[in-house]
């Protein structure tokens, strides 16, 4: 199966791990599985924050079922507190 590389930029509480992480995942992977892959990359202590977070591209937040077909850059957005 074709593998694609997803660069995930980390924000807020994820910054303690690093600023971004590259994930190698099968083409056709949904966003929900990207979150699982990210959890494996960052460690089990990151799971609760990942599950409370959303994945976005530079245009919008992506639904859990959004399918990743090729290499791309995404962001993981934890709960927000601007202002």
């Amino acid at each position: 199966m074709k593998q694609v590389t997803v660069n995930v930029r980390l924000y807020g509480g994820f910054r303690k791990y690093k600023d971004s992480v590259d994930l190698s995942i099968p083409a056709g992977t949904p966003v929900s599985a990207v979150k699982e892959s990210l959890c494996q990359a960052l460690g089990p202590q990151s799971r609760d924050l990942i599950m409370d977070s959303v994945v976005a591209n530079d245009q919008t937040i992506l639904p859990q079922g959004y399918v990743i077909e090729g290499d791309m850059r995404l962001s993981i957005l934890p709960p927000v507190c601007g202002g």
Binding site: P78, P79, V80
Partner: peptide
Amino acid sequence: EWLPGHSLVM
């Protein structure tokens, strides 16, 4: 400390 916030989960 990073502060908690409002989840954007749809």
